[in-house]
Design a protein around this nucleic acid. Structure first.
Lengths: 187, 187
DNA sequence: ATAGTAACTTACTAATAGGTAAGTGTCAAA
DNA sequence: TTTGACACTTACCTATTAGTAAGTTACTAT
């Protein structure tokens, strides 16, 4: 059952969003799936293997959205809105971005996972740059702004807002999103 | 020796910045201080007690900077620069903001520490709002912007940038700081 | 029917975590 | 000189962690 592997990875991502890489355990996963811990080890021998699988899924998700961005005929305006808001809505208020969570736990990560999360972060930035560039071409974003700088700032502020949201409540994210809009919109 | 307690708390904060609340252990601390684990327990019986002491120190640091902001005769421009850049320079590239780290580990924190980190986050926001309001009064920041929204956006983006810096390198933070400046400066 | 494989379970290990009880050395006040 | 507090150490306990070895069940192709 290849499905079981997917189940485990999905649950691992969710747990990483809630508790982080260090804090989640094979016991958490096995109990929630109603199997023994050893059966999780059967699918992913070491925690490192599961960690790599997790980062590979995150990578693929981003690749998918990159393809979607490039091919879809949706307006640049909608793409920008979608990508940002999607992150916000996909997660509950107690969850943060899985990439942020792994960045936070970076020093405790096995080497293989460290390298992967580096790749994921770079790809994420590429995706955001793609969106910003399109929005700029559509004159939604002021073209005098530097694509790279704007992209990295949007990503940082959204990820940071998700952290604050967890302790200060839902409003934080909405406020940051509003302010980003104010900053970015062409006057 | 009240000094030892301070040593422990300082080291705990550093370890939280590097590895997070869940990942750091009494063993880490005792080894780095050259004493036994039990002696750390003598000063802070439970990990929760140390966690509370840590958040209380973070709170006091913020209170100090709040006083400094209100009393110092430095220009609003300088204050804004100082507060933001201070965070960046105080930490090494492998370290993130201790508040962010505790926000990430929020779900794994003891209740008492959760409540404290909530207070710390609110105070941090207050400090940033104070700075933004002053900068606005000095017409450095466009006065049409909402103080609260701008403050929460600055905090979020700086904290987020520290996460990305850890995996993508030092440039990230500089870029975000530059972009924030571009957004904020009066035209 | 049988051999083989996938997906498990049972039962274990070693390491590490937080935490505790009881004792030791040192210093200062009575 | 003794009492007592402080700052420890030694020696432990229990729970949890990642990880493993060996056996079990069920399905599948030959």
């Amino acid at each position: 059952m290849e499905n079981r592997k997917k189940q485990i990875v999905d649950l691992a991502i969710k747990l990483i969003q809630q508790k982080g890489y260090v804090a989640f355990s094979y016991d958490d996963i096995s109990k929630q799936l109603g199997v023994t811990k050893a059966s999780i080890h059967y699918h992913f021998e070491k925690k490192e293997d599961l960690g790599v699988a997790v980062t590979e899924r995150l990578f693929m998700r981003l690749q998918d959205s990159l393809v979607l961005i490039k091919n879809s005929s949706v307006s640049a305006e909608e793409k920008l809105k979608q990508f940002i808001q999607q992150q916000a809505e996909r997660f509950e208020c107690t969850e943060i971005c899985p990439i942020s969570s792994l960045q936070t736990d970076f020093e405790s990560l096995p080497n293989a996972v460290q390298e992967k999360i580096e790749e994921v972060s770079r790809l994420e930035l590429r995706v955001m740059k793609e969106i910003v560039a399109e929005a700029q071409a559509a004159t939604i974003i002021n073209s005098s702004e530097d694509v790279h700088q704007v992209a990295v700032t949007i990503l940082s502020s959204v990820k940071g807002a998700l952290l604050y949201r967890r302790v200060l409540g839902d409003d934080v994210l909405v406020e940051v999103l509003n302010q980003l809009n104010r900053f970015l919109r062409n006057p």
